[in-house]
């Protein structure tokens, strides 16, 4: 075990960095996607509600690995058939796949958060002359966000773990790197113990600091 760490620690740390990068970028995109489709779902327009529902149901109905294959292999081939050259790097495809996947779950978290805020808040803001968008942004979303924090962090952790699925498209994140190392050394037990432990440490650190943040937001004021 020591020898693997000594030989591969740079590679492992880099892989951890890649995992975090992938998680962070797709989460940011997922928040945007989630907010857009959540707003579709809580709005009054039947058309937008339908778009929101279709997106959430479609994405939740497809396994992430299939989505990743579709985006990384399928879409470039489709575009090629139209006569254009188009390639995605594994990182780009991975981010898009994760963001779309996580975005659907975020949309549900946002929707539930928005719906948990008393409708009187929106009415009061509208009665003063604020537009729907401004009332949402000023009054409803800040309150909803506070309610949503635990669920968002939970989703954060799920997405971090889901990055391992993207090892299949060849992005050198942690799991993919684990496969490379076992391929070189044939020492599965030690390698996967180390890789598992690395995920564990990051996720525990993350959920602990999330707890602190959550407590602070609950007691202190923005």
């Amino acid at each position: 075990m020591i020898s693997i760490i000594q030989t591969y620690y740079k590679m492992l740390l880099m892989a951890m960095g890649n995992t975090l990068l992938l998680t962070l970028l797709s989460l940011i995109m997922a928040m945007v996607i989630g907010l857009i489709f959540a707003l579709c779902n809580v709005g009054h327009s039947r058309f937008f509600r339908m778009i929101g529902t279709v997106y959430v149901d479609a994405i939740r109905g497809v396994p992430l690995i299939v989505l990743a294959f579709f985006i990384y292999f399928g879409i470039p081939q489709g575009i090629k058939m139209l006569g254009y050259e188009f390639r995605l790097t594994p990182l780009q495809a991975g981010i898009v796949a994760l963001a779309m996947n996580c975005g659907a779950y975020m949309a549900e978290i946002f929707r539930a958060g928005i719906e948990s805020i008393d409708h009187g808040q929106m009415e009061a803001a509208r009665s003063l002359g604020m537009s729907y968008a401004r009332a949402m942004y000023r009054v409803v979303l800040p309150q909803a966000f506070r309610v949503m924090i635990p669920s968002i962090i939970n989703q954060f952790i799920i997405t971090l773990k889901d990055t391992s699925i993207l090892s299949v498209i060849g992005f050198p994140e942690l799991t993919n790197t684990g496969r490379t190392i076992t391929g070189n050394t044939f020492r599965s037990l030690e390698t996967w113990t180390i890789v598992g432990f690395m995920y564990l440490v990051v996720i525990i650190l993350l959920s602990k600091s999330a707890k602190v943040l959550e407590r602070r937001l609950k007691h202190g004021r923005k």
């Binding site: 009187g120 808040q121 009061a124 009665s127 002359g129 009054v139 309150q143």
Partner: peptide, 20 residues
């Protein structure tokens, strides 16, 4: 309607102060 509502104040049974 947003313009119209500016000049019509409303007070609600449950106050509806912005909690945030």
């Amino acid at each position: 309607i947003n313009q119209a509502r500016r000049h019509i104040g409303m007070v609600f049974q449950h106050f509806n102060l912005f909690q945030n």
